[in-house]
């Protein structure tokens, strides 16, 4: 049984506050969804959990089974059982997927290349990912959807305790999204994987079926409830959770759909790599 606990986490970038006191606990076998509009701090939260450079943790803590995650280097966090599926997986020219995973296994004394290769083949089959992708430079020349499947594949090989999935759904077509969701669900049911699934669309959640939904607005979790919250969000949009225009700090549900935002789910910053035919 593992537990990722985030308490009063405050984070700045270049002196600008981005996360403003996040409290969140994910246990083995649980699926938590974090939903929020563009720019609300979702990716920042995922990056800080994994230790990406460039963020200043001003206050608060992140622990995994009482170990101080913030004191660890990124590779140690991964070895401790954390995994981040990135919103925009980085292209790394000349570095091959299987080589990287072999090094990751060796760093944790978890096995050798043969084990990695065997798991890669198994995972590729599970999500309908062609085996030709297994010995390719990381994310280079992959479509948006292929990158997301590549992230899911690595999750399956690395078998983390807690996985943060940052918009794993963007770029995936309906069928791929279903396969990816099934695979993650399987990990949750069989191995007790804990999931923190970040998204701003509820379509992922109809596949992943979260236990808990958190709404993140302007660096704060403004509401936490059961899966029904995602459905309500579908109707109202995030506008309902935006703080009042007068700058007050009180946050609450402000009612229903704003007419001037006919489609609150329209994504002005849609994944530029998304390939609708992927």
């Amino acid at each position: 049984m593992s537990e990722l606990a985030i308490a009063d986490l405050r984070v700045s970038v270049d002196g600008k506050p981005i996360l403003d006191g996040i409290n969140l606990t994910v246990c083995s076998g649980e699926v938590h969804a974090v939903m929020g509009p563009n720019g609300s701090g979702k990716s920042t939260l995922s990056h800080v959990i994994m230790g990406k450079p460039g963020y200043e943790v001003v206050a608060g803590s992140v622990t995994l089974d009482d170990c101080d995650v913030l004191a660890m280097e990124p590779w140690q966090r991964a070895q401790a059982g954390l995994f981040l599926a990135m919103q925009y997986p980085t292209e790394v020219p000349g570095v091959y997927l299987d080589d990287m995973l072999t090094e990751a296994f060796e760093a944790g004394d978890r096995g050798d290349r043969a084990l990695v290769e065997a798991r890669l083949v198994r995972e590729a089959a599970a999500i309908g990912f062609d085996e030709t992708f297994l010995h390719r430079p990381l994310n280079v020349d992959l479509s948006g959807g292929e990158k997301k499947r590549n992230e899911t594949l690595q999750l399956g090989v690395l078998q983390p305790k807690i996985a943060v999935l940052d918009e794993i759904d963007s770029g995936l077509d309906v069928d791929a999204l279903r396969l990816v969701s099934r695979r993650i669900e399987e990990e949750t049911n069989r191995r007790g994987l804990g999931v923190l699934a970040i998204t701003h669309y509820s379509r992922l959640l109809s596949e992943l079926k979260p236990d808990v939904v958190h709404i993140l607005v302007r660096g704060r979790i403004v509401q936490t409830a059961g899966p029904e919250l995602a459905g309500r969000l579908e109707e109202t949009g995030y506008a309902a959770w935006e703080p009042p225009e007068n700058g007050g700090t009180e946050v609450g549900i402000r009612g229903h759909l704003h007419r001037e935002h006919p489609d609150p789910f329209a994504d002005p910053f849609a994944d530029p790599f998304a390939d609708p035919l992927a």
Partner: peptide
């Protein structure tokens, strides 16, 4: 960071990225 976030040690990540650059 991408490599380290998968559990690769920093010095190994550096080596992989640099040799990948020459690849």
């Amino acid at each position: 960071f991408y490599l380290e976030s998968r559990g690769v040690k920093p010095e190994v990540a550096q080596r992989l990225v640099v040799t990948g650059f020459f690849e």
